[in-house]
């Protein structure tokens, strides 16, 4: 191999590695600003115990440990003004990621989010985790439920209630022919085509 060929190859190698690094940088820069990747957020949603159940709220309210949390009310300001948990700050859901809101979260206290709907508090918590805020907890159930059934008039039956529970006896409503609907066999994926990829080994 002569020298000009070597030079050409060197330039090629430089270009390749340089382009790879450039692409990495560009992808990083045009990508949205997250501190946690999507798999991390899924893990946070599924595996981490970020829920504060009614029974915990009750115990904490009694021993006034609720103030160890930064309570964040995600409802509209109007609702907040009508009354909220003691010591809670108000950040409406749509202003969650604004700069002035994020400033509030720079605290050593763990956050406890609640809203007029459990799902809103939950997704707000996930978004904050994605943005790199640690120690985000979410209150199970909506604010009204917690206020009426936990703080004002605690019912032991509601100790571990959250929104993701069946409210009705579903089988009762679909008595007519329930079994087919239940059987997953009928819903098995249809297989249309079998493709064979052959893998040649070695050289």
């Amino acid at each position: 191999m002569n020298n000009s060929q070597t030079q050409l190859l060197n330039i090629g190698a430089f270009l390749f590695v340089g382009l790879a690094v450039l692409f990495m940088l560009v992808q990083y820069l045009i990508g949205p600003d997250y501190k946690m990747n999507n798999a991390g957020m899924l893990d946070e949603a599924v595996n981490h115990n970020r829920w504060v159940m009614p029974v915990d709220i009750k115990n904490m309210a009694e021993s006034s440990r609720l103030q160890d949390y930064l309570l964040v009310d995600l409802r509209e300001t109007v609702d907040y003004n009508h009354g909220s948990l003691p010591g809670a700050i108000n950040i409406p859901f749509d202003e969650l990621l604004e700069k002035k809101s994020l400033k509030h979260f720079k605290t050593k206290k763990p956050l406890l989010l609640f809203s007029e709907k459990e799902s809103r508090a939950s997704v707000a918590g996930l978004l904050l985790s994605g943005k790199g805020i640690n120690n985000v907890f979410v209150m199970a159930n909506d604010y009204n439920y917690v206020k009426e059934n936990v703080l004002e008039n605690y019912k032991p039956s509601s100790a571990y209630i959250n929104s993701e529970k069946a409210e009705y006896d579903y089988s009762r409503f679909f008595k007519a022919a329930p079994q087919q609907a239940v059987q997953p066999a009928a819903l098995k994926p249809k297989i249309i085509k079998t493709e064979v990829i052959s893998v040649g080994g070695g050289c």
Partner: peptide
Amino acid sequence: KMGKAIKKVEKAPTPVIKIVEIEKPVSGG
């Protein structure tokens, strides 16, 4: 209420999965 919905099960969209089988290579490295 009439349970008509149940009949729909067969016609419901089923996900289609393409099975890709990978043949074992015959010759090694």
